[in-house]
Amino acid sequence: MDEEREKLPQHTPEEVDASRRQFLRNLGVTAAMASLLSSGAILEERRAKRAQAETLQTPPSGATELRGTVAVTLQVNGREHTLQLEPRVTLLDALRDHLGLTGTKRVCDRGSCGACTVLLDGKPVYSCSVLAVDAQGKKIETVESLAQGEQLHPVQQAFVEHDALMCGFCTPGFIMSLKALLDKTPQPTAQQVKEACAGNICRCGTYNRIFEAALAAVQSMSRGG
């Protein structure tokens, strides 16, 4: 048993660790692979893997390779900011570490929990899975933009009144997902509310209160509140 284990290939941590930068750069390739796999063509899959490996070494033609730090201009909450960033910096990290907008939370950093949700041209996106350089020229809205002074957005107000938060770490993400929904669908059904939050995880377990708050916000908005 132990002998067998000894024979297993021993990878160094570097070999095992596929870097996040490569991961993001190859999102397109991965998506292509998924469709090949679904057709069940194993040889095709191997060819795609080889192609992927080659892609890692040389940037595809037409792509720009960015090195060092670059000037990145972001339009955040109605204001323009120009930052000097490494090209691998995500939109999430640019917002939090470079603009001090820490309302957007980092939880999984790989697009599975929704705590980092911001609106990009009105659409909810996981800011951990968008490079800051790719968010240039787009309108970025974070949770900090919703309240007008002490006047909370109806969704925020309803979250407070209905106690739709406990530890509060997932809260900004849920609020941005719901803001995106209500901007597009002012009178959503309960099911639409649930679907709008389907990409957000709450560990404290406030989901039912969030649904309640969202529907209360719809009511107060339709009253012009």
Partner: peptide, 19 residues
């Protein structure tokens, strides 16, 4: 009683250790 730090948490003003 709505929690007293509710407004800080829904606006992103609340500073956690991570922030």
């Amino acid at each position: 009683i709505p929690r007293v730090e509710g407004a800080d948490k829904v606006t992103g003003r609340a500073k956690y250790t991570y922030d």
